[in-house]
């Protein structure tokens, strides 16, 4: 009989992918305009600040940035997988339900109000982005609940309506803002991975990993949810409960990612598709492998953004779009013959 997915098989795949991710992270941490000597790094920090520049660059600057890129990549790819499943829409990405405009509204509000306090080592921009994203998602879910029987369609419509409304508000606020404030907003909207405090990394990392583990737990139900409401119920899935968990946690990890790095496009859309093209649509392997692939992809993209025009840096969103598009097309050309929904 044909091969079925087994726990052992999946564990091996995850292990191999994690090894590749660690390798990519290590190589990317070593790459940069300043050459790093590993020998010097292993010698330790030294007695005074500035004693060991190589150590400070690698451990203090590049490594946190690489970890941040990995966390954001994993969160966006997972969120893309889950939203494509529950919305039964291959075009869905983590921003489809208004998270982007909600976060952007939060950011422009923070910039215009000139607030300078910080919260758990997070800047006001990050905190406002997180709040804007989560409030918008709640609003979309709330409107989607009472606006129709077909929850999926009404959620999508609610997302579109709120996106347009918030875009109008953002345009209004931009038109009354000072040029420096507008610049800060646009720079954030383009998506940037910049160094973060270790505490921010730790809290975000724990939250994102927790979200991914919860979503992994419902993956066999997500398989069935892609067949539609009636089919899923017929196969014993409590559709409202599972959709709420999926939606809630996907939105949660996306909001964290957005608050850390702004709007980084493409990762949440193409990574799930790329993994699905190669490994098939079973979410029990699609979700964890997408998380790891998304992490590796964003780490690599951020490294390119960091070194390609060094000492200047490009927004990572530019690289994800430029590198991601052709990469996806190559996969598409290679696998499209065996994939039904592309025909």
């Amino acid at each position: 009989m044909a091969e079925m997915l087994t726990k052992k098989n999946l564990t091996i795949k995850i292990f191999v992918c994690l090894l590749v991710l660690i390798l990519v992270m290590a190589l990317c941490a070593l790459a940069g305009s300043q050459d790093i000597s590993l020998k010097k790094v292993f010698a330790g920090q030294g007695e005074f600040a500035g004693d060991n520049i190589d150590y400070e660059i690698l451990i203090g600057i590049r490594l946190p940035r690489v970890i941040l890129a990995a966390l954001v990549g994993a969160a966006l790819a997972c969120s893309g997988v889950v939203l494509q499943a529950i919305l039964r829409n291959p075009l869905a990405d983590p921003y489809i339900l208004g998270i982007s405009s909600g976060a952007a509204l939060g950011v422009i509000t923070a910039i215009l109000s000139g607030i300078t306090w910080s919260f758990w080592a997070g800047s006001p921009i990050a905190v406002f982005a997180f709040a804007g994203a989560t409030l918008t998602v709640w609003l979309v879910w709330f409107i989607g609940r009472f606006s129709g029987k077909s929850r999926v369609t009404s959620l999508l419509l609610a997302g579109v309506v709120i996106n347009s409304f918030f875009s109008a508000v953002i345009m209004f606020l931009t038109s009354i803002a000072k040029s420096s404030q507008v610049h800060s907003t646009i720079y954030w909207l383009m998506g940037n991975i910049t160094e973060k405090e270790p505490l921010v990394l730790l809290i975000s990392g724990v939250c994102i990993l927790f979200g991914i583990i919860v979503l992994f737990g419902i993956c066999n139900k997500l398989n069935v949810l892609t067949f539609g409401e009636d089919e899923a119920k017929g196969l014993g899935v409590e559709t409202v409960k599972i959709r709420l968990i999926a939606f809630g946690f996907a939105a949660f990890i996306t909001a964290i990612a957005v608050s850390l790095s702004g709007l980084i496009g493409f990762v949440g859309l193409i990574i799930p598709h790329a993994v699905r093209l190669v490994l098939g649509p079973d979410h029990r392997q699609l979700l964890p492998i997408s998380a790891i692939t998304g992490a590796a992809f964003l780490v690599a993209a951020d490294t390119i953004a960091r070194i390609i025009v060094a000492p200047a840096q490009l927004p990572v969103g530019v690289i994800t779009a430029i590198a991601g598009g052709p990469f996806f097309l190559v996969l598409l050309a290679k696998y499209s013959r065996k994939v039904g929904w592309l025909k």
Partner: peptide, 21 residues
């Protein structure tokens, strides 16, 4: 149910396996 085509590309064995959900 009356014929439906899944959005994503499930193989026959993957489709039949979902019966164990």
């Amino acid at each position: 149910r009356q014929e439906f085509v899944p959005v994503f590309d499930f193989s026959v064995i993957e489709m039949v396996s979902t019966a164990r959900t």
